[in-house]
Amino acid sequence: MNKKKVISLIVRYSVYGLVALFFFWAISNNYFGYIFSESSTFLLLVKQHMQLVLVSSALALLVAIPGGILVTRKSFRRAEWVVSNTVNLGQTIPSLAVLALMISILGIGFQTAVFALFIYSLLPMYRNTVAGIDSIDENLIDAARGMGMKPVQILFRIELPNAAYSILAGVRTAIVLNIGTAALAYVVGGGGLGVWIFTGIQLFDNGYLISGAIPVTLLAIFVDYLLRLLERRIVPEGSRPPQEL
């Protein structure tokens, strides 16, 4: 084995070690206790969290991807500039503020949180859809038109498959981000695992804190992993970028 490989393995196992150490420390202090002692609350919070993410992501998907497709049509090209800049500007507003501002419009509760999360998920999905379609070689579309493909056929057979990699990456980014932002839903009374995290911070109760924070983190990492697997299945082999990490 060469030296470079050894260094890499040392780094990898040190990180594993640190993570293990963290869990050992947390478990020996019984910081995960609430997950078991208040398991029904825990399950409720997990369920709420997933609902927040699922509903808002699904809505964002239904709006952002068709929206991205629409603005890349020839007749809507002019609108693209306006839409893209509006969405970009929207993204500089902190997620916490988007949530907070929704209170004054929609009051407190689940819908408010869903709506804010929905708004916040639009950008990555929309931006990657547009970028994916825009990056397709002009000549491909020309060839497709030249052989008599109808616009709908070009969209579904050429544009979307070749943009799939970018679009799905956007969806994954949005959903993973969404899992984290959903932890802030607590501030608008939207429930979810954020409830325990904030309780923990406010009461200086490490048990609540860790019992909320670690499951959210694992959820995000796990969903990220799942979606990467899904990407690998969906994206046509020929249109994947040459190297992926």
């Binding site: 890499s8 984290g180 932890a183 490490n206 804190l209 924070a213 670690i214 990490l245």
Partner: peptide, 27 residues
């Protein structure tokens, strides 16, 4: 080899929800 390892670790790090990471920093 190290590049792959480090980039993997860094990309997992970025998926950690911010409030969770801040929260865990406290204890």
């Amino acid at each position: 080899y190290l590049a792959e390892t480090v980039l993997q670790i860094a990309s997992v790090m970025l998926t950690i929800p911010s409030i969770a990471l801040f929260g865990v920093m406290i204890p």
